[in-house]
Design a protein around this nucleic acid. Structure first.
Lengths: 359, 359
DNA sequence: ATGAAAGCGCTAACAA
DNA sequence: TTGTTAGCGCTTTCAT
C-alpha cells in the first residue's frame, strides 16, 4: 500500500490538515519549519500524493484531454509531443482521443473525458464543425491548435502561413528568379490560400507582375503536384522556379522536371513547405519551410494552462512562425551534402547499452 | 454540476447501492426490471459515472500508462494508435509518457502514473534496461511491445522478423534471382540479426549457396545503405537483387544504383522492410515488408487487458506477422502505376464540410 | 499556526 | 432483492 498523508501526519506528530497544507503548496499560513520538516519526512517516507483522491475532492484534475482526428496523421504527432512537453512542466498529463474525422465522436470524447474530471481540452487538427455548433463543454476550458476550419477563432494556435510563404518565395527571388510558378493546395485547406497570398505579396514587393498562368491548383499530394508541374513546365515561357504548396507537391514537381529532362536545381528551382521527412530524403533534398508543429503544441498547452490557472486571457489567435530550411532543390551555392540521416538518438542509446552489456 | 448516483437514486426511489449495482454491472444479484428501469432513468437524466470517485474507491483505474522513448519516433505513433483502439473497446484510456531514451525517466514515469492509480503499463519501443534491473512496479501489470532489447521476454509483443525476412527474400527468389545481396542493419537492433537469418534460411531452402561477400553491414540509414550498396555493386560479380535491411537502406541502394547508371528494377531489384512512407514516395516505389505496428499495439493492449482482468496468462512472446507489399522496385510484372497519394480521409472530410457550408 | 471534522461520489461489506 | 453505512485519501471550512 502506498504511503498516505495520514501516515505522514502520524510520523510527524501533526494533523493531516497540516500535512496537506505543507504538501500541496497551500497558501494557508503556516510555519516555515513545520512545512520544511513535513516535506522532508514525506520525501523520506516515499510519499506520493494520491491524485485520484485529490481530484475527487477538488473536482480538478492534472489530466487534460487532447482531441484529434488521428494521432498518426502527418503533423498531429509532433503537436501532441509539444503539448506533452509543455504540460509536463506544470505537472499535467494528457489523454489523447482520436475522432477519425467523425465529428460525432467529438461529443462522445468530451463526455468520456468529463468522467475523469478533466477541466481542459485541446482540439488538435480536428476537422470538427465547432464553428457551426453546439458542443456541450459545460465549463471546461478549451483551445484549438492547427485547426482546419476557417479562421479567426479565439484561443487558437496556428502556423503563420503568410510569413512562411514569404520565406519561401523571397528565397527564390533572392536567388534571382523572376518567373516563379506556384502550385496551390486544395481550397479545402485554408493554408493553401494563405500560402498563395504570401506568394502574391512577395512578387508584388519585388516588383514582379503577377501572372495567372503561373499558378496551378493541386491538392497537396504528389500526383497532383506532378500534373500541375507538367502544365507549368509546358508553358510557352515556363517558370525557372516553383513554389510548391507543400513538400509532397514539391516531390511531384521534382519528378515532373526529371521526366522532362530538366535538372533540379540547375534548370528549375523548387521550394516546398512543411519540412516533412521526405524533404530530407528526396533527391535533390528539398528546400522548404518548417511547419512548427512542436512549437504550436507547446504554445497551445501553455495557453490552456493559462486559461486554467489565471482564468481568462487574451483571445487573439497565436501565430507561430516556421523557418526556411535551405537544402539542395534551389541551388543557392549551398551545394553541401544532403542533411539526411544522422544516426538517431535511439541508435546512440542502443549502442551505449550494448557496450555496457559487453562489460 | 454533473448528475450523481444519489440523484438518480432519489428519482428512482431506490438506494444509492441499488443504483450503483445497476450502473456498474455488478454481479450482485438484483431484479432485472429494477436494473433496467435505473439504467434507462440514468440515461435520461444524463448521468455519467464519476470515474475519479470510482477509482478512489476501487483503487483501480480505467487509465493505463504507455511508456515510450518518443511518441514521434518512426514506429511508435502507429503502435500507440493500435493500443488506443484496442483499449477503447474495453473502455480504457491511456496516458503516454516519453522517456527520451533516458532510462532514469522510466522510474519517474512509473511513479507519476502510480499517483493516478494506474494498474497497467505498456512499455513501447523503450530502450530501457529492464533486463538488468529493478524497476519498482509494485503489483502493477506490464507488457512490452516492440522492445529494443534482447529477446525472449515474457509478456511481450514483437514483429516476426524472421517471417518478414523470408517474405522479402523469397519474393526475390521467385522472381528468378540467384545472386542476392543483403545489407544488414546495425547490430544494436536485434531485428538486423533476424532479418539476416531469414535471408540465409531463404537462400538455403532455395539451394543457393551463401556468399559472405554479398553481405554488407549498414545501420538502417540512407547514407550507410548507399555506401554498402556501392560496395556490393562494385563486386566482380555483383548481385542482381538486394534485400535491404529496411526502407531507408533501400532508398540509399536505389541512389547508389542510379549513380552507377543502373536501372531499378531492370538492372537491380531491391526489397526494403518496414513500409515507411518513403517506400511509396520513392522512385521507383519500394517493394517492402510491413512492420505491423498498429497490430502490435492492439495485441499488446489486448495482452495487458487479459492480465488485468483474468490475472496471469500465457507468458510466451507474441510474434506479429507483416506482409509483403509489392511495388515497383523489384519489377515482377507489376508495372502498374505507383500507389502513392490517394487523397487522405482528412481531405475527403474537409471537402465534405466545405460543400456543406456552401449550402 | 494548527487541528477537527465534513464530505467529494462511489463501492462493497454487512444487515435486513 | 434491497438498504444502510463506512470509508477510499484528500482538501478546506471553521474553530481554536
Amino acid at each position: 500500500m502506498a504511503v498516505t498523508i495520514r501516515q505522514v501526519a502520524e510520523a510527524a506528530n501533526v494533523s493531516v490538515a497540516t500535512v496537506s497544507r505543507a504538501l500541496s503548496n497551500s497558501d494557508h499560513p503556516m510555519s516555515v519549519e513545520t512545512r520544511q520538516r513535513i516535506v522532508e519526512l514525506a520525501q523520506k517516507m516515499g510519499y506520493h500524493p494520491n491524485q485520484v483522491a485529490r481530484s475527487l475532492r477538488t473536482e480538478r484534475s492534472p489530466i487534460i484531454g487532447v482531441i484529434c482526428d488521428d494521432i498518426t496523421s502527418a503533423f498531429t504527432t509532433a503537436i501532441v509531443r509539444g503539448i506533452q512537453d509543455r504540460l509536463k512542466v506544470d505537472g499535467y498529463f494528457c489523454i489523447v482521443i482520436n475522432t477519425d474525422w467523425n465529428p460525432q465522436n467529438e461529443q462522445r470524447a468530451i463526455q468520456d473525458l468529463a468522467g475523469h474530471s478533466i477541466e481542459g481540452i485541446i482540439f488538435t487538427e480536428t476537422t470538427h464543425q465547432f464553428a457551426n455548433q453546439e458542443l456541450n463543454l459545460e465549463d471546461r476550458k478549451y483551445v484549438f491548435v492547427h485547426r482546419l476550419f476557417p479562421k479567426d477563432y479565439p484561443h487558437s494556435v496556428v502556423p503563420d502561413e503568410i510569413y512562411g510563404g514569404r520565406l519561401a518565395v523571397d528565397h527564390l527571388i533572392q536567388l534571382g528568379h523572376r518567373r516563379i510558378g506556384h502550385i496551390k493546395g486544395s481550397p479545402a485547406y485554408y493554408s493553401s490560400e494563405d500560402r498563395f497570398q504570401a506568394y502574391r505579396a512577395a512578387l508584388q514587393d519585388a516588383g514582379i507582375p503577377f501572372d495567372r498562368s503561373l499558378v496551378e491548383i493541386g491538392n497537396y499530394d504528389v500526383e497532383n503536384g506532378y500534373k500541375a508541374a507538367q502544365k507549368l513546365l509546358d508553358l510557352p515561357e515556363p517558370p525557372t522556379a516553383i513554389f510548391a504548396g507543400n513538400d509532397l507537391t514539391a516531390l511531384g514537381t521534382i519528378y515532373a522536371a526529371q521526366d522532362k529532362g530538366l535538372r533540379v536545381p540547375d534548370d528549375l528551382a523548387i521550394v516546398g513547405y512543411d519540412d516533412q521527412q521526405i524533404a530530407s530524403l528526396a533527391r535533390p533534398t528539398i528546400t522548404t519551410v518548417t511547419l512548427p508543429c512542436f512549437q504550436m503544441g507547446q504554445a497551445s498547452a501553455e495557453l490552456l494552462i493559462s486559461l486554467l490557472t489565471k482564468g481568462e486571457v487574451a483571445q487573439d489567435e497565436i501565430k507561430v512562425k516556421g523557418e526556411l530550411i535551405v537544402r539542395e532543390s534551389c541551388g543557392s551555392g549551398q551545394t553541401a551534402r544532403s542533411t539526411i540521416s544522422k544516426p538517431s538518438s535511439r541508435l546512440d542509446r542502443l549502442e551505449a547499452i550494448r557496450e555496457q552489456q559487453k562489460r
